[in-house]
Simulated assay, not measured.
Amino acid sequence: MFDLQGFHEAKDVADAVQALTANPNAEIISGGTDVLIRVREGKDAGKVLVSIKNIEEIKGVKLLDNGDLFIGAGTCFTHLTNDPLVQKHIPMLGEAVDTVGGPQIRNMGTIGGNICNGATSADSAAGMQVLNAIVCLTGPNGERRVPISEFYTGPGKTVREQNEVCTGFLIKKEDYEGFSGKYIKYGKRKAMEIATLGCAVMVKLDKEKKHIEEVRLGYGVAAPTPIRCPKAEESLKGAACTDTERIENYVNIALTEVRPRSSWRASKEFRLQVISELAKRALKEAIVLQGGQINA
């Protein structure tokens, strides 16, 4: 049985904010794939749960008039993977969340919960980093928007206040248009596995598809929080897609920007090896997806 003090089914975002504000011991539940586990283990025992599961306004993916994409925080992984707008504009993110757990988890778990839990192993986290996603939070004082690069403050910690509801994520048109992307998850098995390491790369090539105009490199489980590697990204600007020396240099620079640790899943030394390999592999696959040529 779950040790709960109370349960409130919010009818809309304002109602959820009001319920959270009225009770400092309250926390949000949506899909419940993480929250209920914590409650069952006694970590969140005695909490009041405020459910945002049935708030339709925070579900789905929308293409805004200015070309930006808005992903509702209550969108489950299965819907995200199969959404036509995601498949057309940001398939990398859909592929990333399709590696989460099994079908049951993907049918219940939401993108909002995956990001707001603050876990560096979240499969959506590296992809949202390279998409420069903006986190939309609504609280008693209205809405505020936080760049994903400023959202995480430590392992399992974010800037979201207890009485704020994450309503969704904004991805600007210039952050996805003209890019191709690839997410690679490393784990000990292919399904039902928490990432030992996750790597996301986005690339924009020139018109001739021979040189790199921009590259973004993001990781999960390579540091206490999901991260980007800006120095490695800068090192590849203008590089030929076939320039193996520049690519090796980019990998070496990335290794100076990560901070992996040893855990029961993998040693620090092993993670560094995977970090270098995935940086190279994801980059090459992203280049090929955009029609570029690489040295095999």
Rank of each mutant, 00 (worst) to 15 (best):
E257F: 07
C241S: 11
L217H: 02
K231Y: 11
T256K: 14
K237M: 09
P260K: 01
E208K: 13
V251I: 11
R216E: 03
G220T: 04
D243K: 09
A223V: 11
A240N: 13
P226M: 12
T225A: 13
P260N: 00
R261K: 07
E248K: 14
R216M: 06
E208D: 14
P224L: 02
G238I: 08
P260A: 00
P224F: 05
A223W: 10
G238D: 06
H211F: 04
E245G: 09
R259S: 15
V221H: 07
S263Y: 06
I212P: 01
E234Y: 10
K210P: 05
E213L: 06
K210M: 08
G238H: 09
S235W: 05
W264D: 04
E248Q: 15
I212W: 01
G218F: 02
A266R: 13
E248D: 15
P224I: 03
T244F: 05
I247S: 05
P230H: 08
V221K: 11
A223Q: 11
G218E: 02
S263E: 10
A266N: 13
A239Q: 10
I247T: 05
A239L: 09
W264K: 07
A239E: 08
P224C: 01
A239R: 10
Y250H: 12
T244D: 10
V215R: 00
I253A: 03
A254I: 04
A254P: 03
S235K: 05
I227G: 10
Y250V: 02
D243N: 14
T256S: 12
H211D: 02
L217K: 00
S263T: 15
I253K: 01
P230Q: 08
N252F: 04
I227W: 07
D206A: 10
T225W: 09
E234R: 12
V221Q: 13
A240P: 13
I227R: 06
S235Q: 08
E233Q: 03
E248I: 01
E213Y: 00
N249R: 12
E234L: 12
A239C: 12
L236A: 07
R259A: 15
W264H: 13
E213I: 03
Y219I: 03
T244P: 03
G238E: 02
P260Q: 00
V215C: 01
T225V: 15
R228Y: 13
E234C: 07
H211W: 00
V215T: 02
Y219R: 03
V251H: 00
G220H: 03
H211E: 05
I227E: 10
